[in-house]
C-alpha cells in the first residue's frame, strides 16, 4: 500500500510517517504544493494525506488535481484550520475524510485503513484477527464462525482496536473516536471502561480470547500477547 503525505511541518510528518510505516505502508512525504502536484501526476497512491495550508498553495488544489486525473486514491485532509467551510469544500471536491489538527495517530491510522478499504472495494471483505472476523461493511463480528451481537459503540471500539493492533491506544483517542465532540473527556473514561467490560465479556462468552491489554494510566493495547 502506498501512501503520500503532503505536510509542510517536518516534525509532524516524521511522527505520521513513523506510525504509518510500522503498519506496513509504503509512505512518501512531500512538504510543498509543487512537489505534491508532481507526485500526484506521476505515481499512484492508495491514500493521500494532505494538509490544506501549504507554503506555496492550497491542499484543496492538490485534491482537485487528483480528481482531474481520475485518481482512485483515497484522500484524507488534515488541517490546522478546523473550519467548517474547508471541511465541506474538501469533502465536496472529493476528499474522503477530514481530520482537524491535533489528531491522534491511532485515529489517522484507523481512517487511512477505512479509506483504503472503501477505495479498494474491500469493504465486503472481512478483517481477520485470529478467531475474530469483522465485516466493516455489514458491521457484524464472527468469533469462530459464531455471530457476535455487539452494540454500535462496542463494534466501533473493536474495529478501532483491530485497526491499531499492537499499539498503545490512549483513552483520549478512544473517547474522541467513539464520541467526538459529543461528550466531555472527563466523563467518557468511565464509559469507555464500561463498554470495554461488556465487549470483553461478549467475546469471552463466544469463546474468543481477551486481546485487550490495559496499559495502566495510559490506555489499552490490542495484541496477540
Amino acid at each position: 500500500m502506498n501512501i503520500l503525505l503532503i505536510e509542510d511541518e517536518s516534525t509532524l510528518a516524521e511522527s505520521i510517517l513513523s506510525y504509518l510505516q510500522k503498519e506496513g505502508y509504503h509512505c512518501e512525504w512531500v512538504d510543498n504544493f509543487a512537489k505534491a502536484h508532481e507526485k500526484a501526476w506521476v505515481y499512484k497512491y492508495d491514500c493521500v494525506i494532505v494538509d490544506i495550508t501549504l507554503p506555496d498553495g492550497s491542499g484543496l488544489d492538490v485534491i482537485e488535481t487528483l480528481k482531474q486525473i481520475k485518481s482512485s486514491s483515497g484522500i484524507i485532509i488534515i488541517s490546522a484550520k478546523n473550519s467548517i467551510e474547508d471541511r465541506i469544500k474538501g469533502l465536496d471536491i472529493g476528499a474522503d475524510d477530514y481530520l482537524p489538527k491535533p489528531f491522534d495517530l491511532s485515529e489517522l491510522n484507523a481512517r487511512v485503513k477505512a479509506v483504503i478499504r472503501r477505495r479498494n472495494f474491500e469493504a465486503q471483505n472481512d478483517i481477520m484477527f485470529n478467531e475474530i472476523s469483522i465485516n466493516p461493511y455489514e458491521r457484524n463480528v464472527m468469533i469462530n464462525d459464531q455471530s457476535l451481537s455487539l452494540t454500535k459503540k462496542e463494534f466501533d471500539l473493536l474495529l478501532y482496536f483491530v485497526s491499531n493492533q499492537n499499539r498503545v491506544i490512549t483513552k483520549e483517542s478512544i473517547a474522541e473516536h467513539l464520541w467526538g465532540d459529543d461528550m466531555d473527556m472527563a466523563d467518557s473514561f468511565d464509559f469507555i471502561y464500561s463498554h470495554l467490560k461488556n465487549l470483553r465479556k461478549k467475546i469471552e462468552k463466544a469463546g474468543g480470547n481477551d486481546y485487550i491489554e490495559t496499559v495502566y494510566g495510559v490506555g489499552y493495547k490490542f495484541t496477540r500477547h
Binding site: 511541518e9 506510525y19 510500522k22 491522534d104 495517530l105
Partner: peptide, 19 residues
C-alpha cells in the same frame, strides 16, 4: 491558529513514544 501545529507535534510525538 499558530498553537495548532506545535500542539499536534507534541501530541503525536508523545503517541509515537508511547509505542
Amino acid at each position: 491558529h499558530e498553537i495548532q501545529t506545535p500542539l499536534a507535534i507534541i501530541k503525536n510525538k508523545a503517541e509515537v513514544l508511547l509505542q
